[in-house]
């Protein structure tokens, strides 16, 4: 029995070790080395890269990334909670509605981000329509700002919020709602004092599942934010391309990873269940 199991786990263990854990360990090594003139990382060993994380310039970018991720998560919650509640109570139609949430989610993140470029740019649909209607004289600057980035992140990760919320709301006993109503609670009171507390596990899981990818997002800020918005994902990428400062890029990456891991551990400890 154990031999079969060991053979079954071996390929994945090998892949995880060589293509995930060792690369992260190499990153850790890079983060303690000195930059080379054309990229790469060389001795001497140093903590300088970590000290630079405290530079106000980079702290500002990190703070802004956290802010953008928090705002996106909050909007996802506001949009996603009623939707999840609606789906959980939809009866036989449930599966159709879940489909409508899942389908755009799996069909190409890149295309879905591009769709907003198509809508928002100066010669995009929204501006052309407003110009044609005579409502505006010149195109509105809709693209290449933080608003567009947040819109793209919300659009991209909303399903991550809806699915865990749906899972907890679906398990909610309808008798509890009736009991609250019988005891004189208004619908809003029931929602705030019965439904919301009971769906906390879903709210926590959904918020983390949105916050984490938003924090490290690279594609959305790059396409919808353009050069005007620098978030930590863009900053990391930049260290490995234009800036050629691999050690600092590695330190930044591990900083983001540390935040992600801390959040994940907190969630697992509270809910006693992992992703797997």
């Amino acid at each position: 029995m154990n031999r079969v199991r060991a053979w079954c786990l071996a390929p994945t263990a090998g892949v995880l070790a060589t293509l995930f854990l060792i690369p992260l360990a190499i990153l850790l090594g890079y983060a303690l080395l000195t930059r080379g003139a054309y990229g790469g990382a060389f001795p001497p060993w140093t903590f300088e890269n970590w000290q630079r994380l405290a530079d106000p310039l980079y702290l500002g970018i990190l703070g802004r990334s956290v802010a953008v991720a928090l705002v996106s998560t909050a909007i996802c919650l506001v949009l996603g909670f009623p939707l999840a509640l609606f789906i959980a109570r939809a009866g036989r139609r449930k599966h159709l509605y879940l489909y409508l949430v899942i389908l755009p989610f799996w069909t190409s993140f890149l295309v879905r981000t591009y769709a907003w470029m198509f809508l928002l740019r100066d010669t995009g649909l929204i501006n052309e329509a407003l110009l044609a209607l005579g409502l505006i004289e010149e195109p509105l600057p809709l693209l290449y700002n933080y608003g567009a980035v947040i819109l793209g992140l919300v659009y991209g990760y909303l399903p991550f919020m809806v699915l865990p919320l749906y899972a907890t709301l679906e398990r909610l006993d309808p008798a509890l709602l009736e009991a609250a109503a019988d005891l004189g609670a208004r619908p809003w009171q029931t929602l705030r004092r019965v439904v919301a507390p009971l769906s906390m596990p879903g709210i926590r899981a959904g918020s983390l599942l949105v916050f984490i990818p938003c924090l490290g997002a690279y594609l959305t800020p790059d396409l919808l934010g353009g050069g005007k918005t620098i978030l930590v994902g863009t900053l990391i990428q930049n260290q490995f391309t234009n800036a050629r400062d691999w050690p600092f890029g590695a330190a930044l990456s591990l900083g983001v990873m540390a935040v992600v891991m801390a959040l994940l551990m907190g969630l697992i400890r509270r809910q006693d269940e992992g992703v797997l």
């Binding site: 190499i26 984490i212 490290g216 990873m257 992600v260």
Partner: peptide
């Protein structure tokens, strides 16, 4: 949950 950009550069470094 590893951000794609982090996994990408980790693999590149590797």
């Amino acid at each position: 949950v590893t951000p794609e950009i982090v996994m990408g550069i980790a693999l590149l470094a590797f």
